[in-house]
């Protein structure tokens, strides 16, 4: 016990109080300034990065750039195969990881019994979120490429990235489910709803905003991943598009594109940055801008979903 605690406060002892704006007010100000500084460091770094990319990449960004295949000549090179590849891989990733992630989260949060096994699963999910992405690449190389014989294809890439971001979606979805007040659950049960009806009609709609945020964070991470895709053998030069999903003859749809070779934007950027000379650097910057625009577009979609949900849900 220090003496300071035993000592009665200054006011109680009848001594003059420190003037307003004394030590405590100063501490408050200092902390606010520190917080602002921390925020500015983060925001300004991001702004500087984007600005730098924009200055170097914008002059190169035009329709030709978006509709051309890679080339040895910087002025003719484009990112058509790269952005199409990125879009298709993300589609596969989303189609696999969203249902799996949300399903797993609902099970863990609402159905799983409290026991050792569940604890073990929870710890593992949390740990998986921290596993370096290259490890997922190695797993995918052994499992998808060789053991399952899926080849170095769009499907393999989508599955790999789906595994990679699955823990992020699970964790975010569980947080969102937990944020729904227990009274809502109890009210639904009181009205005779089964557990599934309660989840489908109340829990999921109310937590959709949070889930959407988690999904977008996960997909934003996946879209920039390079290491696992290089490990499974994504290609560097590819001057054709995957097989179109729609065919003129029966059965009109084709899933051939899933097994086609591909490249993605980060790999194309990496290739341009690592070439001899500096001729390709504007191309790399322009490709980076496209990647950032794609990420921001996804984030905007998440924000829109969140606002709509918030408007609908009232308690």
């Amino acid at each position: 016990m220090s003496g300071a605690v035993l000592e009665p406060p200054a006011a109680a002892r009848g001594l003059p109080q420190p003037p307003i704006g004394g030590l405590r007010a100063h501490a408050d100000l200092i902390f606010a300034a520190l917080g602002l500084l921390a925020m500015l460091v983060a925001v300004l770094t991001l702004a500087a990065l984007v600005l730098d990319l924009a200055v170097r990449g914008l002059p190169r960004l035009d329709l030709q750039f978006l509709t051309s295949f890679p080339s040895r000549r910087p002025s003719q090179a484009g990112i058509l195969s790269a952005w199409v590849g990125t879009t298709l891989v993300m589609l596969v990733t989303a189609a696999i990881t969203i249902p799996l992630g949300i399903g797993a989260a609902i099970y863990l949060e609402e159905y799983a019994p409290r026991n050792r096994l569940t604890d073990l699963i929870e710890i593992n999910v949390a740990n998986l979120a921290g596993v370096p992405s290259i490890i997922y690449g190695l797993l995918a190389l052994g499992l998808f490429v060789y053991a399952l014989g899926l080849g170095r294809s769009i499907l393999t890439a989508g599955l790999t990235l789906a595994l990679l971001v699955l823990p992020i979606i699970i964790v975010a979805t569980r947080e969102a489910l937990r944020a729904v007040p227990p009274t809502v659950r109890e009210a639904a049960y009181a009205l005779g709803a089964t557990r599934w009806r309660m989840i489908a009609d109340h829990l999921l709609p109310y937590s959709a905003g949070g889930i959407a945020t988690g999904v977008i964070i996960a997909l934003s991470r996946a879209i920039g991943e390079t290491a696992p895709l290089i490990t499974i053998g994504a290609l560097t030069f590819i001057a054709f598009l995957p097989t179109p999903p729609i065919r003129p003859d029966f059965p009109f749809v084709s899933f051939q594109w899933l097994s086609d070779p591909f490249t993605v934007l980060p790999i194309q950027m990496f290739n341009w940055v690592s070439r001899p000379g500096t001729d390709f650097l504007p191309n790399a910057a322009a490709a980076g801008l496209v990647l950032i625009v794609m990420t921001i577009a996804m984030n905007l979609a998440a924000i829109v979903i969140r606002i709509r949900v918030r408007r609908r849900v009232k308690w």
């Binding site: 189609a95 696999i96 249902p99 899933l258």
Partner: peptide
């Protein structure tokens, strides 16, 4: 989404 994922997986 679940159905689509399963279907496309099976087809692929």
């Amino acid at each position: 989404a679940v159905a689509a994922a399963t279907l496309s997986g099976a087809l692929a």
